[in-house]
Amino acid sequence: MVRHRALRITLAAVMCAAAVQPAVAAEVRDRATEVLAQRLFPMLDAMGRSPETITRLRADRSLATTLATRAKRTAACAEAAPCVAEAALWDEQELAALAHAVERNAAPLLRDRRLVPDDGLASGLAREIRGLNAIVRVYALGMPARYPSIDGPSAAFGSTEAQTRLAAAVRLRNTPRAGSLQTLDPSMELGLALLDVNDRTDASGFEPIDGGDNAAAMARARGLDWSRYRYTAVVLTGIGPEVPDMPLSPGGKYHVRLAANRFADGDAPFIIVSGGRAHPHGTPHNEAAEMRRALIERYGVPAEAIVIEPYARHTTTNLRNATRRLMALGAPLDREALIVCNPDQSRMIESPAFGERNRRELGYEPGVIGRRLSPTELTFRPDPRSARIDPLDPLDP
């Protein structure tokens, strides 16, 4: 009797203990973060979505040593969020160890040529890791963004609001998410969370880019005879407003009419309108979307003839991203497009200084600037190197 009562007490204690034990958190999909990860870190994201690849990487002895060092560095921070952010940075030796391990263990995954850029696995992976470091430095550690007037967090570094956002990002980095790299290293999840909590997910706002407003143009391109046209597209560059709540700048209205006139000549099948949500800082208006609206509503340009490129924040990336859209359309890259913009911007695009800026900021020129046809028109032959993803600009990689 006593033994049976003791057994009942023991079983009850076990059941009670089981009831208060926290359940293992399920890995849920976060669709918004998935899209942002694919835009910023396509190679790292693909590894996170491949359990077999993660298993092989975790078993790689050299990488395991590096990851253990990084984990120990983070553990020493306890709950200090700025310390955790600092510990998440990758140094060059750690980056090299990761690159070598990926080359040894991720070959089946990286046979997908859409993931590996034209300059190779090591270069692409280095850009993703250095971009990740840049996100942490700007959004967690208070370093200035490349263009601080339009980029970076809204909350002042060191403010209570900034500290609250950082603390949330640090907690998010270890909250399970299906398809993430958290079980290998949580630094990429920290970078994504920092952008999320700062409401700077600009890079994913129009995905899938070839659907939505671009769906009609993409469908038309599939059956297009490109040889019928002198130019593959009119590329309309952005010129953002500096006044809050202004949807389209005065210069933008001028650009739109220039493009409408040029399109009416019938020399190009599409107008590519390029411009993101950049000016002024925190504006709710997207320049490409506003230019598209004006072309349709004011000038009667058919929607199937307009391609939006809604991410570019600079003239350099106007041309890079327009090239990406031409590639998506299936346009022949050995044919010229036509850049249309105001005379001042057109002269700047033609200048040697602009070529140098492209080489400095992008690492290449997104195409060859050709003949000048008028004060507002330049020919442009796009370069496929523009397809390289570079999260050093996390709002437009």
Rank of each mutant, 00 (worst) to 15 (best):
D202V: 08
C16D: 08
V24I: 12
R73Y: 10
Q21P: 00
A32N: 12
G191I: 13
L195M: 06
F157N: 11
A305H: 06
V24C: 14
A64Q: 09
F157W: 09
E377S: 03
L109T: 07
R320W: 14
S187G: 03
R200L: 07
A203M: 07
F263Q: 05
D210K: 02
R335C: 08
L373D: 05
G211I: 02
R222H: 07
A101P: 00
E27F: 07
E92D: 14
A6V: 04
H255T: 02
A193H: 09
T379D: 08
E242C: 01
R371Q: 14
T237Q: 04
I272T: 06
A353K: 14
M47C: 07
A80V: 15
A156M: 11
P176Y: 05
A289G: 00
R320K: 06
P366Q: 04
A215W: 00
G142D: 04
N318E: 01
G252M: 07
R360Y: 07
M47V: 10
V256R: 01
T316I: 06
M218N: 07
A162S: 13
A75S: 15
P397A: 01
T10M: 01
M15L: 08
N318C: 05
V20S: 03
A99Q: 13
Y139T: 11
T65N: 12
D213H: 07
E287I: 12
I54V: 15
N105C: 14
L236Q: 13
V116R: 06
A268K: 00
H255W: 11
L110N: 05
N261L: 15
S187H: 02
G251E: 10
M327H: 08
T69L: 15
A19P: 00
A99N: 08
E350W: 11
E304W: 12
R70G: 09
L362C: 09
K72T: 13
P144V: 04
D396I: 08
L40D: 14
T317L: 07
A101F: 03
G120M: 01
R177T: 04
